[in-house]
């Protein structure tokens, strides 16, 4: 039946699949640098042991390329600073939130957000932060901070945010 045929598309695109390999380091677009502040913070930025200092001076988030959970070189710099800060300020625990942009299905984005949060957790642990101080949560595409439907917004939504205990963001 021609109506059916019109819509049939078959063809295994292995080449396409290959370029999505999550084990490849660095993959491009993600780390556009500083994550937007704007979250109410406890304490003063001038106090290097404060939550505000962690959020703004250290940097509480890292960004990811499309459909990736690999920590970018910029992300590594941020996480090195986070690890140092967490080691110096041993009273804090943290929940690492993983997020995705809106261009994905709901369940997959939950799983992807979990991957991103876990990638950050593993990196911090590898830098000496005790794993017992770090939990992860995925929000998938449920909690974007930017609402335009363009790459500039998506790039900032594909993030993992290290939220110090007591400061759980919604």
């Amino acid at each position: 039946m021609s109506f059916l045929n019109k819509f049939i598309t078959v063809g295994a695109l292995l080449a396409l699949a290959a370029c999505n390999d999550p084990s490849q380091l660095g993959g491009g677009a993600g780390g556009s640098g500083s994550a937007g502040g704007g979250i109410g913070a406890a304490g003063s930025v001038s106090d290097p042991t404060s939550v505000a200092y962690f959020q703004q001076a250290v940097g509480d988030r890292v960004l990811f390329a499309v459909d990736q959970s690999t920590i970018t070189p910029q992300g590594q710099t941020t996480l090195d600073a986070q690890a140092n800060w967490l080691i110096r300020n041993g009273d804090y625990t943290a929940v690492i939130e993983g997020h995705a942009d809106e261009k994905g299905t709901r369940e997959y984005n939950l799983a992807l957000g979990a991957r991103r949060a876990n990638a950050v957790r593993e990196y911090l642990v590898s830098r000496g932060v005790s794993g017992t101080r770090l939990r992860t949560v995925t929000y998938g595409k449920e909690r974007p901070i930017e609402i335009c439907s363009e790459e500039s917004c998506y790039a900032r939504n594909r993030r993992a945010v290290t939220v110090l205990a007591g400061g759980l963001t919604g």
Binding site: S69, E107, L110, A111, A114, R115, A117, N118, A119, R121, E122, T136, T138
Partner: peptide
């Protein structure tokens, strides 16, 4: 259902 542990679902 899906269960996530250690980043894997």
């Amino acid at each position: 259902y899906s269960l996530e542990q250690g980043g894997n679902t």
